[in-house]
Design a protein around this nucleic acid. Structure first.
Lengths: 210, 210
DNA sequence: ACCTGAACACCGTTCAAGT
DNA sequence: ACCTGAACACCGTTCAAGT
């Protein structure tokens, strides 16, 4: 048959060198974006990495551990995004809160499957301590900003954790509604997601005003 | 071996009579409570109903349709619970809102898998109109109560849908945090879920005050 | 009209075996 | 130390066949 142009398997890069772990995380993320949360598969991630179906078990005890690693990277990315949003409002913690709210909702709208995975039942934080740590960094950023609002007299005195959880519930709730496409169409038609996030922030801040 | 006491398959009841559909919904709900959202299986629901693995396809086009039916029953139950909670506060719509908030969070805490299924990616409302109708009944109840708050001068004038979505985001967000076990332990230790739901309602109502 | 049995293409996971 | 190949017990779904 001579030198037929036959499709070759993807170049293997340099696995066998210790970076299969991150290649699997990347492969799972690719599947997540392309196929949704239900399309993420251990075998599929292995295929993406150009490796046999049993290879992942050298790096993760089970599927859930791989998903937890993907979720962890998601939280790191989310916290980075929140930081960036807040940084532009250094002197005004209330404005920083609003910017973070919009950033969270934008993050969820742009990568719904990722956001769902980060919060969903596929990974139970209890079983994955490093995922818990990544998630609590978001909480910390939030409560820190709440404390700044105290100092700036934009929020009445009180337990920052308790006040923060109301804020987080509201924004996370909106993000989840967006991700699950559960916002009633009339609301969606009348307002952009940014407007909704801004409005929700305004209401909660007014409710917490001194 | 004489009359050995051998375990018999569950009595078949009277399927073949048109109630296999509801038997499958019940079987799936049983699995949902017992094994969690990831343990719900079409084959398992068929087993629960004492029927072959292919039988469900006479009644549901696919697994997602069965899950949507389970989710639909969940929304009906939730709306009933909300109604009951609100009914005891006929003259005070603000108190009714708070009672509904607590009822929603209690519902989610008591049946986390069910609540997750109702909102999660396993069933996309868009593909299941009757699920959408069941879900929007909850929204309707909420906006109706918001309108009563307008009349009672407990909430400032404004679009009930927009105000309702903030309230719903907050309570749904809290419910989802509970279901996903994402509330920080310090918050949980200091307050009961009822207290958290009450506090969140108070904050949002204050933010929407005239 | 409603259900069964067998089959297909997929999973997650395990385990001996290779280098 | 790291990976492969084959196997096991499960899925969702289809389809001929039974009554």
């Amino acid at each position: 048959m001579g030198r037929a142009v036959r499709p070759r398997p993807r170049p293997r890069a340099t696995y066998h060198h210790g970076n299969l772990r991150s290649a699997l995380i990347e492969g799972a993320s690719t599947l997540l974006e392309r196929e949704g949360p239900l399309g993420v598969t251990l075998r599929g991630a292995a295929r993406q990495a150009g490796v046999s179906q049993a290879a992942p078990y050298r790096h993760f005890p089970n599927k859930s551990a791989l998903l937890a690693a993907v979720a962890e990277a998601g939280f790191e990315s989310l916290v980075r995004t929140m930081h960036l949003a807040a940084r532009r409002h250094r002197g005004s913690p209330a404005a920083a809160l609003e910017a973070m709210a919009k950033a969270i909702v934008r993050f969820a709208a742009e990568q719904p499957s990722r956001y769902r995975l980060m919060c969903g039942p596929a990974v139970r934080g209890r079983d994955h301590p490093s995922l818990l740590r990544a998630a609590s960094a978001a909480w910390d950023l939030l409560t820190t900003t709440i404390r700044e609002c105290h100092r700036a007299k934009r929020i009445r005195p009180g337990d920052p954790a308790q006040q923060g959880f109301v804020f987080w519930s509201t924004i996370h709730g909106l993000a989840v509604l967006v991700v699950d496409e559960q916002l009633p169409p009339p609301v969606l038609r009348a307002h952009s997601l940014e407007q909704l996030a801004g409005y929700a922030t305004t209401v909660v801040l007014a409710g917490l005003a001194p």
